[in-house]
Design a protein around this nucleic acid. Structure first.
Length: 832
RNA sequence: GGGCGUGUAGCUCAGUUGGUUAGAGCGCCUCCCUUACAAGGAGGAGGUCAUCGGUUCGAGUCCGUUCACGCCCACCA
């Protein structure tokens, strides 16, 4: 088995075995929207499993005669790549730094002192590093035997992908589906970028409740807050309209502690009487409820937090008493909190001691500090989050889609129903697709955001940082009366939401697009339904009025033996190349195939061994079958042969039915079960006859049946064990033949006159014969001097037709005595 | 708090529309170098089908309850 991966991946590449040949019509194509892995990360066993699942379907469809469009993509665009480049080279992007064509990164990257470099230098390093990563990824996929057509490889940062992303964006804008807005936005202070709802993660975060007095006309009003540093930003106190404790205060004002700002006390149903003090301080902005209050109660905007997560250096003008602010100015929220708590203590406005609490807070999934809410100008795409008609239309798309497994549909619906805003696609980062947008500068040099200049579709892809706006020259950049380019890039999802369009040639290849879009199948893991799956539905719905594919196939995760998610920090990650080296690709694929769609699967290295044994068994069984000179046209007449082939026919039906339902697990299960019985019982039973012990005609029947069964089995196994089946196939088919291009087996190839039950009954007799020897602890070669087989009348008749085979396999030297009974049992006397 | 899923042998999992004695592989025990295969083969032990209740002649399977676990979402003063 050694070396099969190397040999065949090379031959397949040379022969173009998996090349997509464009057929005449869409019906002849099966197209797959392969998930483009993030190349800045590393591939783990979960990837290996889920990509294998896709490949199983691809190979099955190819054998069914479909032209399979199975491209690979690399997601090399966006923040993960930036982070990796920063760490790998010890650099950071500072857009104001000029381009240095001769820049070389430091030899020893110092994470504490990252070298500031220009945006262009930074992007070049990103491209350089991703190219290296992508080679390693491709090598792994080839070793695993993915039947990808590598000539259709795409990357999400390529000019082609940028063209798609910009073109789709321009069209969204033209139809009013993309828009720019200044609005409170979830903001990561570490990366200094806006973050979308889909990228949020809840995490526990330690904090304290502080009970703080606001000064009412008669008595203090106590609120409880976990974020006292935001007191300068308070614009209202809010209680529930039905709360009798606060009803008398509605409409009046209180003064904030330390700063003496007049704060209105207002009612709103969203306030919860049993939470904290029952009255909340609303500031701009502490959390998403604040945003809702601010919007619905039309409160003033009082911003004190900068984009870097620090309090603004200048004291805000609305503070009646600005003096205490000096203690907080310019500090991080954490330090500002310490400072103000000290001040509140001194002024007597802190009631009692802070109470420790663990609270759930929104984090950027890749970030380490809690998200802030900061008002910024951003680009959005409508996704139904603020528009019920669109929301209903997208929910209907989810209903229209075929889900494997079916219940994953609910996750989609729940996510769309829970959206609370449009899709924020702009990021204040560098390595991504730029917005094809410029802004005019007025006479004072202020940008006119109300009337952006959009690029012409014919000019795509463009980079407004390097190319002037239409109708302007580069000299007019940044000068009054001139223009500036939009500084932001699109989030990765804004590009990867278009993978069907990018892969299928929406831009530049209308013929391919017509043949492959909408695609047949979208494979992905279940964690990504809310992000990638949903965003592709949004884009295809808006652009084409269609679903981007017909089937969504959802894989589970590979989890560690304790059913915990594998993660680097736990040190329980299995390196895919290690298990591929140790057990071989076929064995790993076999294990992957036994993980059902949508179901998490615990990783157990021992199970790979079983897959390896199966692959080895295929080789050995084939060696035996092909070792005999076979007359292919010989009539198959022996009842045992016909019984075996009748069983195989039902295996073919079952496996086909399973694959049609994307249930590859059932297909391998039924095939494998048959194969082991085939080897252990049938093959042993007919061995001597096949060698000629019962004459030429009987031998020919066995040999023809063996050859036919092998040929069908190889094709049934081919999607699962592509290397070993191809190896065996090559032993007796022509040089140019590939099992992977052979026709999927059909029942019509097999004789239908056999009694499938006979072989099972033979199996029971064999167990009896072997059991007798096993119990006596003697070799299977030991002769049986006298045997009695008891069986029901109908079984007896069948068994008697294979008496010669039974005698041969059991080494029965005398005659078999047949007796009628309720069940099949065997009694045997062994040679002393 | 809402939703989805899962609970069958020590482990990983099958179990069709309810129908004799609940299956497979791994692991374990015993044995066997047998001419396709010792990186193999044969045989064996091992289960109150999470709980309680209901429907039925009959329930692992259908209905309800409870418990446990996992995931998604919401909340987060």
């Amino acid at each position: 088995m050694e070396g099969l991966e190397t040999k065949w991946q090379q031959l397949w590449a040379e022969r173009g075995t998996y090349a997509f040949q464009r057929p005449a019509s869409r019906e002849q194509v099966f197209s797959i929207d392969t998930p483009p892995p993030t190349v800045s990360g590393s591939l783990h066993v979960g990837h290996v499993f889920s990509y294998t699942h896709t490949d199983l379907i691809a190979r099955y469809q190819r054998m069914r005669g479909k032209a399979v469009f199975y491209p690979m993509g690399w997601d090399d665009n966006g923040l993960p790549t930036e982070r990796r480049v920063q760490n790998y080279y010890g650099v950071r992007c500072v857009p104001s730094v000029p381009y240095d064509p001769d820049f070389t990164p430091p030899e020893q990257p110092d994470p504490k002192r990252q070298v500031p470099i220009s945006r262009q230098n930074f992007v070049e390093l990103c491209l350089q590093l991703t190219a290296v990563d992508e080679q390693a990824f491709e090598a792994l996929w080839r070793t695993l035997g993915l039947s990808v057509d590598w000539s259709y490889l795409y990357t999400t940062i390529s000019p082609h992908a940028q063209h798609n992303a910009q073109q789709a964006f321009l069209r969204n804008y033209a139809r009013g589906e993309a828009y720019m807005a200044e609005a409170p936005t979830l903001w990561d202070v570490t990366f200094q970028t806006a973050v979308a709802q889909a990228e949020l993660q809840d995490r526990e975060y330690a904090g304290h409740y502080y009970r703080v007095a606001f000064h009412g006309p008669d008595a203090p009003v106590y609120i409880e807050t976990t974020r006292p540093e935001l007191i300068p930003a308070v614009c209202a106190l809010i209680a529930h309209p039905d709360d009798p404790r606060y009803q008398p205060l509605f409409g009046s004002t209180v003064k904030s502690p330390l700063f003496d700002v007049e704060i209105p006390v207002l009612p709103h149903f969203k306030a919860e009487p049993d939470k904290g003090a029952g009255i909340a301080m609303c500031c701009t902005f502490g959390d998403l409820t604040d945003v809702q209050w601010w919007r619905e109660l039309q409160l003033p905007t009082r911003v004190i937090l900068g984009r870097d997560g620090r309090l603004l250096a200048e004291a805000p003008e609305w503070l009646a008493n600005p003096a205490p602010y000096a203690e907080m100015a310019g500090k991080t929220t954490f330090s500002a909190r310490e400072a103000i708590v000290q001040l509140l203590r001194e002024s007597g406005d802190l009631d009692g001691e802070p109470k420790p609490t663990m609270r759930m807070t929104n984090f950027f999934e890749k970030g380490e500090k809690p998200l802030e809410i900061i008002s910024t100008r951003q680009w959005y795409i409508r996704n139904g989050g603020r528009d019920d008609e669109l929301r209903q239309a997208l929910i209907a798309r989810g209903e229209e889609l075929d889900w494997v497994p079916e219940y994953m549909r609910h996750r989609y619906t729940a996510w769309v129903e829970g959206l609370n805003g449009d899709w924020l696609i702009s990021r204040q980062r560098f390595f991504g697709v730029p917005f094809p947008v410029w802004y005019r500068l007025d006479a004072e040099g202020n940008p006119d955001y109300a009337a952006p200049i959009m690029a012409d579709e014919a000019s795509l892809p463009v980079d407004p940082a390097n190319q002037p706006a239409p109708g302007f020259t580069e000299e007019q950049r940044g000068v009054p009366g001139g223009f500036i380019g939009d500084p932001d890039v699109m989030d990765t999802w804004a590009t990867s939401s278009l993978t069907p369009q990018i892969a299928c040639g929406w831009v530049g290849d209308p013929e391919l697009f017509g043949l492959t879009f909408p695609m047949d199948m979208a494979p992905q893991a279940h964690d990504i339904i809310r992000t990638w799956l949903f965003s592709r539905v949004v884009r295809a719905h808006l652009e084409h009025g269609l679903l981007p594919w017909h089937h969504a196939a959802v894989s589970g995760f590979v989890v560690d033996p304790d059913r915990k998610k594998m993660s680097k920090s736990k040190g329980n990650v299995i390196v895919p190349s290690d298990i591929l080296d140790e057990f071989g690709a076929d064995a790993v694929r076999w294990r992957a195939a036994s993980a059902r769609p949508g179901t998490d699967s615990p990783f157990d290295k021992l199970q790979m061994k079983v897959g390896r044994r199966l692959a080895m068994k295929v080789l050995n069984a084939a060696k035996f079958v092909l070792g005999m000179a076979t007359d292919h046209a010989a009539p198959i007449t022996n009842p045992a042969d016909l019984s075996m082939l009748a069983q195989l026919a039902s295996v073919v039906s079952a496996a086909t039915e399973a694959f049609e339902a994307y249930e590859y697990t059932d297909a391998i299960e039924v095939t494998e079960r048959f194969f082991w019985t085939f080897c252990d019982d049938y093959l042993e039973l007919v061995k001597e006859r096949a060698y000629g012990s019962q004459g030429a005609a009987e031998a020919a029947s066995a040999q023809a049946a063996l050859r036919l069964a092998l040929d069908v089995l190889l094709r049934l196994f081919a999607p699962f064990l592509p290397f070993v089946t191809e190896e065996v196939w090559s032993w007796y088919h022509g040089e140019d033949s590939s099992v992977h291009l052979a026709a999927w087996p059909s029942v019509a190839e097999l004789p239908n006159t056999g009694d499938p039950v006979l072989l099972d009954q033979v199996g029971e007799v064999l167990v009896g014969l072997r059991g007798a020897k096993s119990e006596a602890k003697v070799s299977m070669k030991t002769e049986i001097t006298a045997a009695t087989v008891s069986a029901p009348a109908d079984a007896l008749a069948g068994l008697q037709t294979v008496t010669a085979d039974l005698k041969a396999v059991g080494r029965i030297v005398g005659e078999i005595e047949w007796r009628e009974a309720d069940a099949i049992t065997v009694a045997a006397e062994l040679q002393a």
